[in-house]
Write a protein that binds this DNA or RNA. Structure first.
Length: 562
RNA sequence: UGGGGAGUAGUGUAACGGCAGCACGGCAGAUUCUGGAUCUGCUUGUAGGGGUUCAAAUCCUCUCUCCCCAGCCA
């Protein structure tokens, strides 16, 4: 007997499973599967399905298989198999020894096809693709029966065997199920179950030149693996009668297909076809570009698998088509990284600050807390000296309303260091501010004022002499609008691509504790956001991807003021 | 005009004849050595009409809107 996790939200699929468990429909077993086609990289929409299938298995003490749905040799490649496995594993799921391939069942599919022929339920059809389309009818008109529909079992058997033997060219014949050409459900109008494809398969090589179609292969694969609940997306809803038809005609163990709505995310796209346009059009730098909603892109961006799993849980599962606000994904990663990311000081757009009354060659080591959310993460030393960098927009010569950072005559705190007061502004010939001169109060060492006076802002900073050089890649939403379809007449999603989705800052300054950062390390740059070291990092120049900004009340206020 | 689905706050998702809840967002406030985090409060919803019932998001009925299907793709 399983005890469902009370903390995990329920959904209609779990309700069905609980019911099946009660009625012992599947013998108290729960067995799901995640069946990607290895023809591209996984994205966050797949993550929803992975979390659903593996999550349900775990919750009900069941099993979940990983299965490559590789029935079309012209589209699939071994490279994708590896990336899919890596992504599922990274997401935190384990299929143990149950790594399967539909192509492992090719022999079995063939036998099933022969059985259907013998039962008079399948026939070899010589219609060309074009003819078949005409015979199929339309959404509102019934189809016509193929002239080859009533061949004898013997002739069908012979023809099908010769299809397999390679006697015929691609597209010249198909094997079709004999169902009902007048069905309102077009999937039931004698669907093709085998096609001729003289193509090299990534696993079976040239052993086969006929390949089964999805509808035929999928239900039998599920059956072979003794799947109980075959969970798929909504567009397969009207394939279910066909799923059931094959299994009934073949008299096989019969899993239950259940459909749910795929994930849509605001401000981005979620289709392989569009990803390709992005990559090939040069809008992004590859499938794992940190702007892509692919698993590999999110990983490179700095997302954790915990955050993605948590996201998958929060969005729920239903049959209604919907678009989840990307703000929820961002919330999930902030929530996770807030607890685990060490804090560090980094200045992205440096503005030089000189402390006039600080001794010329002096350096102090000040204590800084690594993570105020987790005292166990300890403290570190940060060097302080006379010349520092602060963030350009932490200074305003003429402070706008509501701005309480540094400006002439005003005192602020340098985090973990001292109170400083701006006494002068240095500009170049063009009037651009090149340096701010300040004085400090030695009594405020560590950041507290003995006299109890308050300061309205605390700024992050980096000692110029000790700073590390770095590059920061700031990412923003891929699309300017929530909905990729919200475009002008005749335009597509490419017309609303956010041209500012990547901003590269090359003159960043980091505190020296970051010297040994490795690719993939995540930090919170205080007051700025969460950043993840990119694999492009060089020895003398670290490169960081901004995973997500911190929530920024000030930015909101400024935006409203405009 | 064929077949299959779906309509609950701005967004997503619960409630399965019995108080419409939760999360994100938004808006206030408290607090703070991150304008972060945390805490508190507020905001807004059952597509529409009729019916059954003591009681309807839930059952019946009519209507409206949206999505999917005419690959030898999955």
């Amino acid at each position: 007997m399983t005890t469902p996790d009370l903390t995990a939200p329920s959904n209609f699929i779990k309700t069905i499973i609980e019911e099946d468990l009660k009625t012992k429909k599947y013998d108290n077993r729960v067995h799901t599967r995640f069946p990607p086609e290895p023809n591209g990289y996984l994205h966050i929409g797949h993550a929803k399905s992975i979390c659903l299938n593996f999550g349900i298995a775990k919750e009900f003490n069941g099993l979940c298989n990983l299965r490559m749905d590789d029935t079309n040799p012209t589209k699939e490649e071994a490279e994708y198999v590896e990336s899919i496995k890596a992504d599922v594993r990274w997401l935190g799921f384990d299929w143990q020894e149950r790594m399967y391939y539909a192509s492992d069942y090719f022999g079995r599919f063939y036998e099933c096809a022969v059985e259907l022929i013998k039962k008079g339920r399948a026939y070899v059809c010589d219609l060309t693709p074009d003819e078949m389309r005409h015979y199929r009818g339309t959404l509102t008109e019934p189809g016509k029966e193929s002239p080859f529909r009533n061949r004898s079992v013997e002739e069908n058997l012979d023809l099908f065997e010769r299809m397999r033997a390679g006697d015929f060219s691609d597209g010249s014949r198909t094997l079709r199920a004999k169902i009902d050409m007048s069905s309102g459900n077009i999937n039931m109008r004698d669907p093709v179950i085998y096609r001729i494809l003289h193509a090299e398969h990534h696993r079976t090589g040239d052993k086969w030149c006929i390949y089964p179609m999805y509808d035929f292969a999928h239900c039998i694969s599920d059956s072979i693996e003794r799947i109980t609940h075959s969970i798929c997306t909504l567009e397969f809803e009207d394939h279910r009668p066909l799923y059931d038809w094959f299994l009934n005609e073949l008299n096989l163990y019969h899993p239950q297909q259940i459909e749910f709505a795929r994930l849509n995310l605001s401000h981005t796209i979620m289709s392989k076809r569009k990803f390709i346009q992005l990559v090939e059009g040069g809008y992004v730098l590859g499938w794992d570009d940190p702007r892509m909603p692919t698993i590999s892109g999110l990983r490179r961006r700095g997302y954790t698998s915990e955050a993605i799993r948590n996201f998958a849980e929060r969005i729920g599962v239903a049959k209604r088509e919907s678009t989840v606000d990307i703000a929820l994904l961002e919330h999930c990663i902030r929530e996770d990284l807030n607890k685990r990311a060490p804090r560090v000081m980094a200045v992205l757009r440096p503005l030089k600050v000189t402390i006039d009354n600080y001794p010329e060659d002096n350096t102090e080591e000040l204590d800084a807390i690594n993570n105020p959310e987790d005292p166990d993460m300890g403290t570190r030393k940060v060097p302080f000296s006379r010349v520092l960098y602060i963030e350009e927009d932490d200074f305003q010569e003429e402070p706008q309303k509501g701005f309480f950072r540094l400006s002439p005559g005003r005192e602020v705190r340098l985090r973990y260091a001292y109170f400083i007061k701006c006494v002068n502004v240095v500009k170049d010939d063009s009037g651009k501010i090149t340096e701010v001169r300040c004085t400090y109060d030695p009594a405020t060492r560590g950041g507290d004022s003995p006299d109890g006076r308050k300061v309205k802002a605390t700024l992050h900073w980096v000692s110029a002499r000790h700073a590390l050089d770095a590059e920061a890649r700031l990412y923003d939403h891929l699309l300017l609008k929530e909905d990729a379809n919200d475009v002008a007449e005749g335009q597509d999603f490419k017309s609303i691509i956010n041209s500012g989705s990547l901003e590269i800052l090359t003159a960043c300054k980091l505190e020296p504790s970051l010297a040994n950062t490795k690719a993939g390390d995540r930090y919170q740059f205080e007051r700025l956001g969460y950043f993840c070291a990119d694999r492009d990092s060089l020895k003398d120049k670290l490169i960081f991807n901004r995973t997500v900004t911190l929530k920024d009340t000030w930015a909101k206020v400024q935006k409203k003021g405009q």
